[in-house]
Design a protein around this nucleic acid. Sequence first.
DNA 1: ACTACTTCACTTTTT
DNA 2: GTGAAGTAGT
Length: 733
Amino acid sequence: MTTTIFATHHYNYPQNFIEMKPKITRLKQAIKKLEANLINADAEVLAQRLASHLGLQVDYASELNANQLLAATTIEGKVLVIAGAGSGKTKTLTYRTSYLIENGVSPKEILLLTFTRKAANEIKGRARALLASTPSFAQRLNEDLVEDKLPKNKALNDITSGTFHSFCNMLLRQYSGLLGINPRFTILDTGDSEDAIDLIHKEKKYPTKITNQAFPRKKTLQNIFSTSRNRRIHIRDLIENSYPDIAVHIPVIEQLAIDFHEYKRANHLYDFDDIISQVVRHLKHNDTFRQLLQNQYRYIMVDEYQDTNIPQKELIDLICAPTSVSLMVVGDDNQSIYAFRGANYENILLFGEGYPEAKLIKLEQNYRSTPAVLDYINALSAQITLGYQKQLYSGVSIEGVKPIFRRLSDESREAKYIADRIIELKPDHDYQDFAVLCRTSFQSNYVQLEFMERNIPFIVVGGIRFIERRHIKDVLAFVKILYNPNDTIAWHRILTLFKGVGSVTATRLTQAINADDNSFEPLLTTKFAKKSTQLEPLYKMLSQASQAESVEAIIELILDFYMPVLKINEDNWRERSEDFRVLKNLALEHDSLDKFLENLALDPPNDSVATAGEPEKGEEGIDKNRNKVTISTIHSAKGLEWPVVFVNSLVDGMTPHYRSLSDFEELEEERKLFYVACSRAKSRLFLTAPDYFSSYSGYFDKVSRFIAEVPADKITVLTVKQPLEESDDPVWW
DNA sequence: ACTACTTCACTTTTT
DNA sequence: GTGAAGTAGT
């Protein structure tokens, strides 16, 4: 029996474990079944495979390891690739893409779905570089191109790639005729959806209270509607199970969901869920549409499959239904951390159930971490109840340093300890080699403070996103109504900016405009016109903007109008207006309104980045702006890596988060989250925990169970006997 | 429609 | 313990 750290601690197991058992059993069976279809790299088979294509330009065999090569060259059938942390997943997809093309697959037949556009572009870009770097292929490409008078590298641009949302958005617009929908729709982000729900609630005059039980807030409602759709749970069941205190409102909420849906359809509005679900609906009911896509996309690759939700899985299944369509889904079941957004970890575990003939390939060689770190993350992996068997191994023989766990009296000490280690290791590293990963963004505050005091430059990832800032949403609302005058949510947002115009007037005015064939005249002519002196200038601005030549010109006009309004409404208008520069730059990059709006909605700039600290003076060869310590939430760190990683707040209640303690699946996801955090480290991993954590939610003082449950030999626990230089704190168990 | 008071929810957030 | 959002009263 292995000794674990803090073996004396007792942690309550989630109460619903018993109920979970049948589900666990089913999942385990599905896993076992697919494990039986595991294919391993057989040198002979691979050699044959490559030999049969003597014309291959890229040297796949020397660039990839055996299983990567297997995955890259298995191009028919349905395949699940379990790609462990740091196992070269992107590289494999890149080489597979180029292998497909070298095998004569037309780029137009390839569909590559990822979770960010960045990932899709990276794979495409790297595949292009790969093919271009082999002279004869590049030449061949060019010859084709001269012939077809196509721009350079057009071939790879023809690959359909992007996120599920951008793919579906494209389909809805491109096939609007076939599907019988209006292609000029606008996209509601989460906040817009909330506003819409609230608006409908008021318009329909539904009760706000039943027997003294308050009606849920718009945020809660949006959450319920979205979860209900993404996880395919009836609103009634969802509320009864997860929101029991609002059960009296179920009938009204169900009706509201229907109203919300009709409202969106009537006004050409799609929320994030609609974009996918509507495509799924059309695929199910429109045979022409389905066959069209099935014939077009013959080679489909899906990245991060563990984080797909049910509608996304259905979308893939509908297109991939014919056995002739090739499907490769890639993911790591240990890294599914987005259940709160509807991601369904069962998709990856049940892959073999949907495709009984499916093959399984595992990438287990890790190119990131030292053996000492790998040993630890393998031990963490062993604690995860459900998943494919996997054992990561390192190609590196230098053992490295075991992860270090250190408990400190409070969060400030924790931050100090982290800063100390950075200063200590700095001689051998750049600042950009370090990352501090936190369970919640709030937990980074102490670290930020400490870094500021010590002049450690840092960059914070996460927080309020650019696109969600109020003034950005305001400006975009103007753009939206120019594109889709039926965007009642945008109208409402604009009109209520003005003093004297409230919810009622805004709704009436919007109705008048929509009823008047979307002319802006009612701003001047209706009895509401004199509610605010701003309406006439608004009319003028909109009329001008609708004639404007470029997106940039439109933004300029809007800003001229909006700046005075912002000055009245916000004290920090100067600070806020800084963001408009970003907006203007984006406008320059787009030549049409729909592309501009689409990009902002589906690929928003990640400019919510706060920075501080003095850049290093005279440091050579390093971009000052980039040489900073990263402070990030664990979620935002997924897919990234650093030589030195710190994970803080390892108190049971913070990590795992107290809201997850009573639910088996939620606790399991927290465990995976910790796994993601630790597997970001290349050579050094520091784990820290304060002595206690207390808030409105309770008082927590046990070390995280994720630390406690791992065999003691995998980690170095610093104790009193190994004091740190300035350590005057007692060491806490 | 605006304001002052009260209540409530409160991780994570690739879309 | 804190902010946003909802309610009641002007």
